[in-house]
């Protein structure tokens, strides 16, 4: 049982990493990773939604008839996303200023609905929570890594700390093409490491 729980968490972080292996949730991955902090904040907000929605959907799975499962899942997910949005706006306004537009978009993030449909609707509450945690951490790690690389190469800083002069930064990494370049190389690297 312990092994199963650990496997469920590790699965989301490594083998089925939502960004590098499942290639889900590309919109926030590409758009919010302009800095390490932005990537991490987005990842953690998504993790919270994933855990809560997985738990609630797993609890309600027998009360939701199959034909209306998608609208029911979306209502549950949207509720948690709105809660996260209000909480971030109230208690971490700095993060809200940076991510404002992208927080409501967590509702349509494929990872959240994907895990609700593929895992939470078929498994126990405990395992669903662990799956949400694993997937969320995997997503957060991926976004933080992409954000850190883009910030470092583009502006010469990491988590806002200046490591070298911004003048030598390659601006392209902060812009949209940089997101695709970093994502592509990281995906190739992770796949290579996983196949070893």
């Amino acid at each position: 049982m312990k092994n199963k729980a650990l496997n469920t968490v590790l699965n989301g972080i490594l083998r089925e990493n939502p960004v590098f292996a499942l290639v889900l949730g590309m919109c926030p991955t590409l758009a919010t990773t302009t800095s390490a902090l932005n990537g991490m904040s987005m990842g953690l907000a998504t993790t919270f939604v994933l855990i809560c929605s997985n738990v609630v959907i797993s609890l309600l799975k027998n009360l939701i008839p199959d034909k209306v499962r998608i609208p029911a899942f979306i209502v549950v997910i949207a509720t948690f996303v709105t809660m996260v949005q209000l909480l971030i706006q109230a208690y971490v306004p700095v993060v809200y200023d940076k991510l404002g537009l992208f927080i409501p978009l967590i509702v349509v993030n494929c990872i959240v609905l994907g895990r609700a449909e593929a895992f939470a609707a078929k498994n126990t509450v405990g395992l669903s929570a662990l799956d949400g945690l694993g997937m969320g951490l995997g997503f957060s790690l991926a976004l933080t890594l992409i954000g850190a690389l883009r910030e470092l190469l583009g502006t010469g800083s990491l988590f806002g700390m200046n490591l070298y002069s911004e003048t030598y930064g390659m601006l392209i990494f902060v812009l949209a093409p940089g997101a695709f370049i970093v994502l592509g190389y990281l995906m190739a690297l992770v796949q290579k490491l996983l196949k070893k």
């Binding site: 309600l60 008839p65 209306v68 209502v75 949207a78």
Partner: peptide
């Protein structure tokens, strides 16, 4: 089912 979920939400 949908009404109940919407109300709780």
């Amino acid at each position: 089912s949908l009404t109940l979920i919407a109300l709780v939400a």
